[in-house]
Write a protein that binds this DNA or RNA. Structure first.
Lengths: 214, 214
DNA sequence: CAGTCAATCGCACATTCGTGGTATTTTCAT
DNA sequence: ATGAAAATACCACGAATGTGCGATTGACTG
């Protein structure tokens, strides 16, 4: 163990898995596992007195605080700390939650030890190691994220006015900002309502957000 | 070239790159490039008369129809057709758009030929090959997607009323639906506005969508 | 030229909103 | 019992909305 070696913390409640993986890491040149914890809470007790590690390997299904919640809390300490998830969970919701909270990589526990070591090196090189099946799932998640972008044939001016309305301006304020008569804005909004099939501000704002009209 | 070999189409306007990569693929056991096109439009002319390929390698910056638009149109032919992006673009918007339209992988043109061949094999094995820098960027995109869920201390009743207001009901309509006096709804809404620091319907609806208040 | 569309402007007015203020009752915790 | 929070209700009124109707001008196209 040398000062330049990469310091890794592991948070994993299965003690056999934790010990065997710690051994692998400690036997790998250039890295060492200074701590391995069975829970996030344990890690946070130590974090107050020591420097943050260079990487965290984090399970999700943990006693007490889950790995997802753990990401949140680690992120309050450092936005850049690489956090590689190492878990059995591959359902969409868990993957999505972990990534949204800021996971830097996502491996499954059936990964070989070589793959895990390679992934540690990858995250150090600026990558984002993902299990192959997870990568596929991640890309599929984007299709679900895609907002249905609708087209109601709004004119340029109508969109301009709509943006200001959605931002909370009254008709008179919109008129003042665009150097128009109040009546002009009123007419445009009337036309917008007809095109969008709504008749209230609430309706129009909802539609803008739900259907990405800009 | 055998019947079981993987049929790949390439869509790439740089003819030198297109030819050299086609050669690499044709020299790789188990795969062949039956067509290489300089534009999406050319590919769609052929697609009407031939079977779809097993994989498409797709550039983004193309003459005429862009690769992003091309994904959309290929997806109308097949939801499962693997489409690997091979491009110089690594800006967030382009990556995001390509993935949302259904890209199955995303490589950069500085990838080695070995990496490209390996990625083809990876997508066939059910993966989603991503350039390392792109993978990192993709995970960062999730943090941006995460909606900041805020808590303004709204009571149960306030949330109930807010939902109906956001859905487009007038105060009187809300009162009728909840068997309350108009004045009660008015008071609740007054309190909601104070808690959310807004003073218009547009403001409150925007806040609900931006900050996931329900 | 005629027709269409977009932009601009106006009238009229019933309806609704937003906000300042007030009050009572019920429920829960100390 | 007391106090706080939530729920309910009310008054007042200027500001703003939503919708029916109408018109003119400019740019573009066939």
């Amino acid at each position: 163990m040398k000062d330049e070696d990469i310091n890794i913390w592991m948070i994993e409640d299965n003690s056999r898995y934790r010990k065997s993986l710690t051994t692998v890491i400690n036997n790998t040149s250039g890295m060492f596992c200074s701590h391995s914890f069975p829970s996030c809470e344990d890690a946070f007790l130590v974090i107050e007195n020591e420097n943050l590690p260079d990487i965290i390997l984090l399970d999700i299904g943990l006693p007490g605080m889950s790995g997802i919640e753990g990401i949140q809390k680690f992120r309050s300490y450092s936005a850049d700390l690489p956090i590689i998830i190492l878990t059995i969970h591959e359902d969409n919701d868990t993957v999505f939650d972990a990534l949204c909270e800021g996971a830097s990589g996502y491996l499954l526990k059936d990964s070989s030890q070589e793959k895990i070591v390679a992934s540690i090196k990858e995250v150090l090189a600026g990558g984002a190691p993902l299990n192959m099946r997870i990568a596929h799932k991640v890309l599929k998640l984007f299709s679900r994220i895609k907002v249905k972008k609708s087209d109601y044939g709004l004119t340029t001016r109508e969109k301009e006015i709509l943006k200001l309305i959605v931002a909370g301006n009254t008709k008179q304020q919109v008129a003042d900002k665009l150097f128009l008569s109040f009546h002009t804005v009123n007419t445009h909004l009337k036309n917008i309502y007809t095109k969008l099939h709504v008749n209230t501000i609430a309706g129009v704002v909802s539609k803008v957000y739900k259907e990405d009209l800009f």
